[in-house]
Amino acid sequence: MSAAKRVQQWATFARTWHIYDCKWQDPYESAHVIKKYLMGLHKPIYHPMNDCGDVVVCINSRDIALRGDEWRKRAYFHHTGYPGGATWTLAWELHNKDPTMIIKKAVYRAIKGNLQRRHTMERLFIYPGEDIPEGVLENVTNQIRQLRLVPTRLDHIPEEVVEKYPKVMEYPEDYVLK
């Protein structure tokens, strides 16, 4: 193999590091996006038997958003293997215990169950907050677009900006706000 062919191969199979901000994102929808990058499905060279998957770094997994009353209704099942060893943990309980668990399980479920799945999962890094190790951040060269726009909360906008914003109407002076 000539030098040119060798570096061509090296560049083709280079692992890109992607970052994904989980803030206000549905973990079950995001899982399908993350999975695509983890397995290398977004590449034209993809084949189930070639190792072309990328690395994904998820940040802010503490701030994920579940739909409706999923926090209270969704249960994660675990069985220890002993009689009476079944437990059903609610999503909010699990999230309190480990804020990376829900996104991890969602991605794990999104990937088809085969021998490769656990190795693919090794390439997923999840951090509950924005603080991630310096070495990891240096590797990152691409950002995966968020599925939903993160809205700005009114109480996060400074008061002066709120006051300056043009109003449709003023409340009458004798109006009592609840």
Partner: peptide, 14 residues
């Protein structure tokens, strides 16, 4: 003009 996975064994530079 480009690098990938700087701190890894599979680093690739352009």
């Amino acid at each position: 003009i480009g690098d990938v996975g700087k701190n890894t064994l599979l680093a690739c530079y352009r």
